[in-house]
Design a protein around this nucleic acid. Structure first.
Lengths: 147, 147
DNA sequence: TTTGTATTAGGAATAATTCCTAACAACCGA
DNA sequence: TCGGTTGTTAGGAATTATTCCTAATACAAA
């Protein structure tokens, strides 16, 4: 996963020089945390993690950086509702399952969907940029400890 | 669509008496507006529409009522991000396309997905309650008037 | 280095949603 | 029909995720 970061870092470096953006310490460290995270962290969660490496970083910077990454195509927001937005450093096509009880999010692949063709009524109406399945349910951990 | 409301109204009536909830004017009118809406309105939008019939209704009541409807299975929140939550009075299985530019949302059916089986890694991890596809893109109207 | 300018920290501002409480109105039974 | 009980509402205050503002900072090109 370190090499995973390296790849993303090189991508960020390239995009920054292309777009006249600066490769700051904050951007690098937010990218590092996001690339190694497997739990689709919120901005707040990412903030507390990055603080370990960049103690003076502000929450606003984390939000701003995530926004920049989304513009650059390096990150995505997971379309689940909840108080906090959840972010994903993996922008390759995949789907999400979310536990409506604890908020845990897991990735999954579903080839039949990914490779299937959208109905014409969709592609007629708009130029599609992203297609994903959202599954909601109650995970095993929450199922056991029902309140 | 009036008969559509009638069906939902009867359902609401039944659920209310089952759960000891009261069939208030506000609940009835919010349901009527939601049942006839085809644009997946926000709470704010619904509020201004219902005001035509119930001038004194408060925004809080609309939010509270939508929450109640979701608990009762009469409404659902569309999992798209944006400043305002978007609500759907149609709880039958279907998918959504959203224009990331203007926020328009359209329903669609995709039988291959609806009838397909989720990968085991998903059903092993949680008890699934809802599966839907979210398509994001730019609609024709926005494509034309690009800024 | 030096300099120009994008970026940041930190706190203030914004805004969607929820909370609080007194007044209200369904619904039950008489 | 008429009260009484109690769930519900209106309205404004409170909460909180996210964004805005501005002086200070630090990339990166020369």
């Amino acid at each position: 996963m370190e090499q995973h970061f390296q790849k993303k870092f090189n991508h960020l470096k390239e995009l920054c020089s292309q777009k006249g953006l600066r490769l700051t310490h904050q951007r690098t460290e937010v990218l590092r945390e996001l690339a190694s995270a497997k739990d689709h962290p919120s901005a707040e969660t990412l903030y507390s993690r990055v603080k370990g490496r960049v103690p003076a970083i502000s929450l606003d910077t984390v939000y701003r950086t995530l926004g920049t990454f989304m513009d650059l195509g390096l990150a995505a927001k997971v379309p689940v509702d909840g108080d906090l937005g959840r972010f994903d450093g993996d922008v390759s096509p995949h789907h999400h399952v979310v536990c409506v009880c604890c908020g845990a999010i897991r990735d999954f692949i579903w080839d039949e969907v990914s490779c299937g063709e959208l109905p014409a009524e969709v592609t007629d109406w708009c130029h599609v940029t992203d297609t994903q399945v959202i599954v909601r349910g109650i995970c095993r951990d929450c199922k056991g400890s029902d309140s």
